[in-house]
Amino acid sequence: MKIDIKNLSHTYDVEVLSDINFSLEDYTSVAIIGVSGSGKSTLIRMMSGLEKPTKGQISINGSDVNEPDYKKSVGFVFQNHNLFPHLTLKKNITLVLEKTRGYSKEEADKIAEKNLALLHLGDQGDKLPKNVSGGQAQRASIARALSIDPDVIFLDEPTSSLDPILTHDVLHAVEELRDIGKHFIFITHQISFVKDFANYIIFMHEGKIVEHGKPEILDNPQHDSFKHFMKKVR
């Protein structure tokens, strides 16, 4: 995957991202780490086209994230599963496929079933989100993201609201997706998962990318804020 970020700044009430310049090529799985409030979520939302930056440009795999068609090529998994609560797990997927991707009902059903099975939810498709565990709902939301056949899947702290067992459950399911040929950009506080799954790491602090590199940088942080962070999460 190719990431290109130029002069990116973003301000809500205060500046959350300040003048980020960054480019990367040839990595399939990128982790963004850092303390809460360091701008990770904002960055991932900008990269996925969910929010527009105050200033600067981002392109992913050669397409500008502000182009209208870009969003349709993106899978996004939110912190809290964010399934539509009135629809069953399966309907959450088929509605998207039928209404926004033009699939027939039969095709949509097939794709939904395939992806639910991939996330070990083959027998849960007819349940409403409120009737499954948080981990199952989050896995269903990953299945929904996969169903639209995106180039890149963004995961914004997908396990932040889950207990340790469900967290393992979800992250294990993501690890199994390693070989499906998708690119991942994700935020997590689970350092062991970062080590297992990421092949590139970005560390953010106070709205800037402070350090980045291959997973080895976790063992030898240079910047004080990164050292401090690694001491806390170990």
């Binding site: 086209g49 969910l50 969003k71 349709k72 996004f76 009135h86 998207v96 209404k99 926004t100």
Partner: peptide, 25 residues
Amino acid sequence: EEQYMAMDLFGFTPFQRYRYIIIPQ
């Protein structure tokens, strides 16, 4: 707000948002 973000991301038209997601809820 995140549901609206998801609707936006998937590319539902305003009519579809109301018809299939907002009004039923």
